[in-house]
Computed example of a mutant assay.
Amino acid sequence: MFNQNPQRCLRGLKSEFTDIAHRAEKLFPILTHLTVETACRAIVDELNYSISQIDPKKTINMGAFRLKPDGSLTDKKVPLARSETNLSELLDGVCGSMSDYALHVDPDTKKKQYKRFAPRSSDAGDFPDFNNFKFDGPEGSNALQFACESIVEEFEDDIISLFAKETDHVVDKLCNEVSDHCKGTKFQSDEL
């Protein structure tokens, strides 16, 4: 399974994203590969931000909660931020933040990509140049939200598993390898 040809894996990944895009195009004609790619990258960005806002000292009890022969409980504490319970809750709300993204056109290169325009509470005073954003009304954010929901629905277990154990290169692994289909490939686009 993991010894697949990287080209074959890339075709498989492109096929999966293309399937999502084709399903969504029926509802949102403006949905493109760029929208699906941005949604994938935005999921990672939003989850990483939400995880970073949780106190690293907070833990949650996990385990079978069974009694040992001596009468004590067998459970273990894991960091709350990357626990499956917390990640599942964060994932349930991640697509709601897609309304904070809009199409951005680089003034020099004319490259189009969706970027976050709404500053977070920790970004106080760090406002982007709104002249380079194209706000296409609710249709744009709805298409991005639909792409996000499609990705989350299809790959929820893989996303949770990846965030539970990974801290680096999550964008590469989620957006290129999606559930470990294509190990060893690199993400080709700029970061959000």
Score class of each variant (00 low, 15 high):
Ser83Gly: 03
Asp75His: 02
His181Asn: 13
Thr167Met: 10
Gln53Asp: 12
Asp19Arg: 14
Gly137Pro: 06
Val105His: 03
Ala64Pro: 02
Thr59Leu: 09
Glu139Val: 14
Thr109Ala: 08
Phe187Gly: 04
Thr59Gly: 06
Asn142Tyr: 08
Glu149Trp: 00
Val170Met: 13
Asn3Trp: 11
Gly71Asp: 04
Val152Arg: 03
His181Pro: 03
Phe127Val: 04
Leu87Asp: 01
Phe146Pro: 01
Asn86Gln: 14
Gln7Ala: 15
Leu103Trp: 02
Arg120Cys: 00
Pro119Lys: 03
Thr74Phe: 00
Lys76His: 02
Pro128Gly: 04
Arg41Phe: 06
Leu192Ile: 05
Phe117Val: 05
Thr74Pro: 00
Lys58Thr: 12
Met1Trp: 11
Asp75Asn: 04
Glu37Phe: 08
Glu37Lys: 11
Ser50Glu: 14
Phe133Trp: 03
Lys173Met: 12
Pro6Glu: 15
Ala42Glu: 09
Arg116Met: 04
Asp70Phe: 01
Ile159Pro: 02
Phe155Trp: 07
His169Tyr: 11
Arg11Cys: 09
Pro138Tyr: 09
Ser88Thr: 12
Asn132Pro: 01
Gln188Ala: 14
Thr109Leu: 10
Arg8Gly: 15
Glu46Val: 15
Asp126Trp: 00
Glu16Asp: 14
Glu191Gly: 04
Asn132Leu: 01
Thr32Lys: 12
Leu10Asp: 13
Ala39Leu: 08
Val105Ser: 06
Pro119Asn: 01
Asp158Glu: 06
Gly140Glu: 11
Arg116Ile: 02
Asp126Glu: 03
Phe133Gln: 06
Pro107Thr: 09
Asp136Asn: 11
Val94Leu: 10
Phe130Arg: 07
Pro69Gly: 03
Ser122Pro: 00
Lys76Arg: 08
Thr74Leu: 05
Lys57Asp: 14
Ser50Lys: 15
Leu67Asn: 07
Lys26Ala: 14
Ile51Tyr: 10
Asp19His: 09
Ser161Asp: 12
Lys68Ile: 03
Ser150Lys: 10
Arg82Phe: 00
Thr59Pro: 04
Ala81Ile: 01
Glu154Tyr: 00
Glu166Tyr: 05
Ser150Glu: 12
Lys76Leu: 02
Lys134Met: 08
Arg120Phe: 00
Leu80Ala: 05
Gly125Cys: 01
Cys9Thr: 13
Val170Gly: 10
Asn131Ile: 03
Asp172Gln: 14
Leu47Pro: 10
Asn86Lys: 10
